[in-house]
């Protein structure tokens, strides 16, 4: 299954190359290092908050999961370097959506 197919099921996976084993991000059908095939690694990944800000009552942050960085929503004001996990993710109106806790 593709990264997007798993994401639309609410599952965040880390795409990696079957040949060079490097993480492939943004998700792609081939590795952007060696053009090898991509497989998905499942897990309960830990991320780290790199930076954050706030819009109205909601917070959003730049989070790093291994070498993957994404923007995600977070319900409470985070701290820099805080460890987080993906709490909810999916595809809404053709856009990825990430929430961490």
């Amino acid at each position: 299954m593709s990264f997007e197919a798993r994401l639309s099921e609410g599952k965040f996976c880390i795409p990696e190359c079957t040949q060079c084993k490097k993480t492939v991000w943004p998700p792609s059908e081939f590795c952007n290092h060696c053009f090898g095939d991509v497989q998905l690694r499942e897990g309960d990944f830990e991320g780290k908050v790199i930076e954050f800000s706030q819009q109205k009552e909601g917070y959003f942050c730049l989070v790093e999961f291994e070498s993957i960085r994404i923007m995600a929503g977070i319900s409470q004001c985070p701290k820099l370097g805080q460890t987080v996990r993906m709490s909810k993710c999916g595809i809404i109106n053709a856009s990825y959506s990430f929430w961490v806790v």
């Binding site: 943004p26 930076e51 800000s53 960085r69 923007m71 856009s95 990825y96 959506s97």
Partner: peptide, 21 residues
């Protein structure tokens, strides 16, 4: 629109906020 790693925060005001902070 392509930049899905921004999640639900695709508008430029979000990267600008991160830059600023």
């Amino acid at each position: 629109e392509w930049d899905n790693s921004r999640g639900q925060y695709k508008h430029p005001v979000f990267w600008a906020s991160i830059f600023s902070k």
